[in-house]
């Protein structure tokens, strides 16, 4: 079965309080090399049948209309998952 991956991130200009909290916790656990953290979402959409451009276009549409809110988020990637 083919799989499409959609990645959504909070807009750069919007403060990401979750990412900030994670960034604050890392040094306390000894991870001192990371200057900032932003936290986003990854969706995996499984496709019945043959993967084709039409299905990918549907996924792009779903990503922009449902999976993300353009006021606060950007769709950063819609792509086929690599064969595992």
């Amino acid at each position: 079965m083919a799989r499409i991956v959609v990645e959504v991130m909070p807009k750069p200009e919007i403060l990401d309080p979750q990412g900030k909290a994670v960034a604050g916790a890392l040094p306390r656990l000894g991870f001192t090399e990371f200057a900032a953290v932003r936290q986003g979402k990854r969706f995996e959409l499984d496709v019945e049948g043959e993967p084709n451009e039409e299905v990918l276009e549907q996924a792009r549409k779903a990503a922009s209309e449902v999976l993300s809110n353009p006021v606060i988020e950007d769709v950063v990637s819609v792509h086929w998952a690599r064969e595992s």
Partner: peptide, 9 residues
Amino acid sequence: GAMVKNTQL
């Protein structure tokens, strides 16, 4: 607009 988490989480 939209709502996100409170600043203090």
